[in-house]
Design a protein around this nucleic acid. Structure first.
Lengths: 211, 211
DNA sequence: CTTCGCTTGTGAAATCAATCACAAACGAAC
DNA sequence: GTTCGTTTGTGATTGATTTCACAAGCGAAG
């Protein structure tokens, strides 16, 4: 089943359910109800059922969902039934933190290339990889068949890097630079902006008069 | 003006407008229209006007908004007219990346304490600070009057750290650990989950049939 | 002082997302 | 094989957010 339009927030909840399912499977449970999933995921049971129903009927009335099978189905739905080849642009501190973070590999994401424009960083060994010159990005990205790009550069370089990524055939970009990137239709872009997160906290603390 | 309820997404857009205003001010523009802001921010002009109108009437019909003044007003609205004292829990690679990132200080956020539970890390000098033992968190946090906490620990420790933060009087938490934290009402929590971001990209790439 | 082009501010309308509520379906019990 | 307690799947409803559309206001021009 491939529904017309799934909201971004629904997809994010699927990721959430997947983690809860992992925990349940580890705990040896064989079936879960939408209520179980909802409680652990911090949403309502109806929301869980609605989210899942967009992709098919995975549960049994009166019983709930089979943990193992539902986990497989959600994995498949999210596109995690395969491994993804990721390129990292920016070999600074944040880039290093992401590169050495184990969680990505566990979820099926392999960083297969790292780039920077700083001569001091180019050539350094990072695990199995060597930091490459950003000038060789296009050829290396194509050779390594990179499908996703993670931008961890300063804001000023981010748009240029995005353009080059797209020119190299990358169709999905995760941008950590605090700037709004312009990308053509068909390219998927997600932004993680740490300043905005903190500012949102500042707003909440400043306006929590009614609490 | 302090409106009843502003949506989380509207607040995030205000952060966005603030950055666009910075750029316009730097470029020497003295007034901007909602259309200008919208174009640079990737939203619609009506959205810009609606967002701003929740907090007052800052523009002049026929002219637009005065850049400098609007920037000040939005700064004030977001609670950025002062500095915020932030505590960082977790002195790993990601913690270091955040600590040494200049963007926070520029926006008014000062990391005034860093904690870890690893004896190898405790006592190390980070810039002007020294990594402290997480056991001394409560007293140090209170002494430093920390108002926000950033959790950059492994998932298993995150809930415990959050509980201790809250016990220390912190009312706003930014959580990078890939787990859902339970917090009491009145505590503001924002999550940044890098795995979910990548999974959302995987989903988009997998289902981009209609593009 | 009147007209004109432009832009705001904002109710109304439309779109989108979350919740409700209930019929249908299931296994267990007897 | 019937009843019972439970839980799904989903149309209907409610709620939230975005977009529309236009009156009102502004400065400039003459």
């Amino acid at each position: 089943m491939r529904p017309a339009k799934i909201s971004e927030s629904a997809v994010r909840r699927l990721s959430l359910y997947l983690r809860v399912l992992d925990a349940f499977e580890l705990a040896g449970k064989t079936t879960v109800s939408s209520g179980d999933l909802a409680e652990r995921g911090g949403v309502t049971p109806a929301q869980v059922r609605k989210d899942l129903s967009h992709f098919g009927s995975f549960g049994k009335r009166g019983l709930g969902y089979p943990v193992s099978e539902l986990r497989e189905r959600v994995t498949e739905i999210l596109g995690l039934g395969r491994r993804w080849r990721v390129g990292l642009i920016g070999a600074g501190k944040l880039g290093a933190a992401l590169f050495f973070y184990d969680g990505f590999r566990g979820q099926g994401f392999d960083v297969v290339a790292v780039f920077d424009n700083d001569p001091d960083k180019i050539g350094r060994r990072w695990g199995r990889l060597v930091v490459e010159d950003i000038e060789s990005m296009d050829s290396v990205m194509r050779a390594s068949q990179v499908e996703m790009g993670i931008i961890v550069t300063p804001a000023v370089s981010a748009q240029q890097v995005a353009d080059r990524l797209i020119a190299s055939g990358v169709e999905a970009i995760l941008n950590f630079a605090p700037t709004r990137l312009q990308v053509p239709p068909g390219i998927t872009l997600r932004n993680v902006n740490l300043e905005i997160e903190l500012e949102s906290l500042a707003f909440a603390l400043t306006h929590e008069n009614g609490a």
